[in-house]
Write a protein that binds this DNA or RNA. Structure first.
Length: 276
DNA sequence: CTGCATGTTAGGTT
DNA sequence: CAACCTAACATGCA
């Protein structure tokens, strides 16, 4: 559901709304249904000021004064909503955050429960494998680092783009769209790609992510931002979920194959193998 | 009923 | 280590 652009939008929305606030109360609707990655209780963050909100890969990091952070991963179907006042609890709501000031509430909702909400010690977070093992940010990565990551790897390029340890934040939608724009077949081996081609891929990834953020992300099934608004970038998808439809560039029928157990959509003419 | 879905991780084999 | 596969998690939809 949420890849880098969607997580970035939610992070920006959170910055606009809850930075500087303190959480007064956290209601856990069904505690056994919430995934965590540490044993620190959620109540550790109560009555502490929210000092910063950042994104790393597909994680949202909300930092509090006195050394704790809240780490949120939305998984496939996680949602955060900022809602006015008291509203009835919806199906799959898992957490309700009340603030010290104002009546607005933050709701965490997750249909499939693949997401996680974890309190971590901020000092420990620095050492936590989660971030140290994660690859660079695609919007920040330099040409040299991008080349270093890919040029010696023998795996299929699509598999590597999805691997958060290689590069952080891409998911199936934006990996497919970036490969289409760079005219690379998803099963091309990374080490066969020329430096020029890899640099084109780096540019395509950046352009697509920036545009997707501008357009409010992609709403395929049910993604929406903190205020319940849908994204528009799905209207710009060139290959993702477009099996059987004509390629926008050449009219060839878009195909769907399996790469690393994930569906991959591509144009067999624009993304020929050997176009390296 | 079956198969599929935007994600991650642990554990296995080669 | 690298590469690749499987299963697991849980729900909804076609």
């Amino acid at each position: 559901m949420a890849e880098l652009p969607e997580v970035e939008i939610i992070t920006q929305d959170l910055k606009k709304t809850i930075i500087g606030k303190k959480i007064k109360r956290i209601e856990e609707i069904c505690p056994e249904n919430l995934r965590r990655k540490s044993s620190i209780g959620l109540n550790e963050i109560l009555n502490k000021k929210i000092t910063s909100i950042k994104r790393r890969g597909k994680y949202i990091v909300i930092s509090f004064s006195k050394g704790y952070s809240l780490l949120i991963h939305l998984g496939m179907t996680g949602h955060l909503f900022y809602k006015r006042g008291r509203e009835p609890i919806n199906k799959h709501d898992l957490l309700i955050f009340d603030f010290l000031s104002g009546k607005n509430r933050l709701i965490y909702n997750d249909i499939r429960r693949f997401g996680s909400v974890t309190v971590v010690d901020s000092a420990v977070l620095q050492k936590l494998n989660i971030f140290n093992k994660m690859g660079p940010e695609p919007l920040m990565v330099t040409k040299e680092e991008f080349l270093r990551i890919f040029r010696n790897r023998k795996s299929k390029i699509k598999s590597l783009l999805l691997d958060q340890k290689i590069i952080a934040g891409l998911g199936n939608i934006y990996a497919d769209e970036a490969l289409f724009q760079a005219k690379i077949h998803p099963e091309e081996r990374a080490n066969t790609l020329s430096e020029k081609k890899l640099e084109m891929l780096r540019g395509s990834i950046k352009r697509i992510l920036v545009k997707a953020i501008q357009e409010g992300g992609s709403t395929i099934i049910n993604y929406c931002n903190l205020f319940g608004e849908e994204g528009k970038y799905q209207n710009y998808h060139k290959v993702y979920s477009r099996k059987g439809l004509p390629c926008a560039l050449c009219g060839t029928t878009i195909e769907k194959i399996r790469v690393s157990q994930r569906s991959s959509f591509y144009c067999p003419k624009c993304q020929k193998k050997g176009n390296i």
